[in-house]
Design a protein around this nucleic acid. Structure first.
Lengths: 227, 227
DNA sequence: GAAATTTTTAATCAAATGATTAAAAATCTT
DNA sequence: AAGATTTTTAATCATTTGATTAAAAATTTC
């Protein structure tokens, strides 16, 4: 083949008639192993600091396989990144909708779910924040698509509550407080732990405490007295 | 000179008798120009994503000069990074000491100073958080040295207040809330603006509002009723 | 079981990138 | 002004790194 020319390589699933997908426990498909290794490293160290060779090592496969399955580092990153982002936004907005609950109970559900989520994926928020800064426009539509419906519904309620005098707070402040009080301890965890001399076990206990505290605080902050 | 051998290059100031430092407005020294270009790019894009050639371009100098003045990319980064970190911590703890004020007035001074600081250097917090995650141990002593005194003094007061029943809140929660409510809006600015549909001007107005609101909220959260 | 197809590997390429070198230009010393 | 020293540059080096290739190994199809 001529130099510089690019062939269209046989992609798995493209013309393949392979139908069996290994579902044996512990034996993921090669493609999945690469993706998981990539997710781990990209999320931990970001795009630029991650080497494709490290991903290959982590996945226990040959470097060429990475390109065989995903074409390029960038494509692989985009894939992982979008899945991360969807996961993050979903975890954030899943409980916004449920109209059967009072605002306070709903807040408790949101915060609890989100703290559990962050406990499981503590590296996600910083990854997301970096990605957004590095590429704000690419994220735009993603945000709209993913949280558009939830956002507009939740916001209508917020504005309605403000009109009724039940809230005396700009929706921006409310969202910033909700997300900030919930996410920030995880984002700044190493710094906070060092400054306050708090160990790992105690940190987890404190996060459990916050499941109750943050909703109480948020409710207090919404009151007219505080605005 | 033999290959691989490394000479000790003439460093400015090492054996130089040059005494005049250009203080003309707008005409920084070459060394300073490089450092500022490096600060800008490193802070914006992180270590791995920043090319030494980009720094050289930004500073308007030849690439070799960067190594002439700072030996290596890593050394230059360490320098900038430490200065950033000192600036960040200083801005954060400068107002913790002043015992002449009431707790509430002190909080107002702290938050006001910090929001002004963040308005001037909005990229700093995310840079710091990334650095800490990437190298937690290297930061440890820096934190101790820089905020050690302020921290211990402030914490003694917090614990004292808790004993006296004036505060019913773990110091960790207090610090997390203080920093979270202040810093997080800047860290998550692009995301928050998009979600809440807030423009740049309005964002700045909201931040000014928070100078008054955050101290009020913090005071509310300290009350026994909220703990 | 043989041929076809897909998956995996070792070797290598080409571009990017941090760093160095030798020489030119600028500045300082006397 | 001459010589010494410092600063700056163009060219080049060596390594890293993302990507490709050609062949081997494994799997599927018939």
């Amino acid at each position: 083949m001529e130099r510089g020319k690019r062939k269209t390589p046989a992609r798995p699933g493209a013309s393949a008639k392979r139908t069996k997908v290994s579902t044996t426990a512990g034996t993921e498909s090669t493609e999945e192993r690469i993706k998981e290794a990539a997710r781990k490293l990209f999320t931990q160290k970001g795009f630029a600091a991650t080497r494709t060779r490290d991903i290959a090592n982590e996945a226990g496969i040959n470097l060429a396989l990475l390109n065989y399955y995903f074409r390029s580092k960038q494509k692989l990153f985009d894939l992982v990144m979008m899945e991360n982002f969807r996961k993050f936004l979903h975890g954030m907005t899943i409980n916004f909708q449920d109209k059967s609950l009072t605002m306070e109970n709903r807040l408790e559900k949101i915060v609890t779910a989100y703290i559990d989520f962050l406990t499981e994926f503590p590296d996600l928020p910083l990854f997301i924040l970096n990605e957004i800064r590095g590429n704000p426009s690419r994220i735009a539509d993603k945000v709209k698509k993913e949280i558009g419906p939830a956002r507009s519904q939740f916001f209508k309620e917020l504005k309605q509550s403000k009109k009724e005098g039940k809230i005396a707070l700009d929706p921006f402040h409310f969202v910033a407080n909700l997300v900030g009080l919930t996410v920030f301890p995880f984002v700044a965890r190493p710094l906070l732990q060092r400054v306050t001399e708090v160990g790992d076990e105690q940190f987890n206990e404190l996060m459990q405490e916050r499941k109750k505290l943050v909703p109480i605080w948020l409710k207090m902050m919404m009151m007219p007295a505080g605005g």
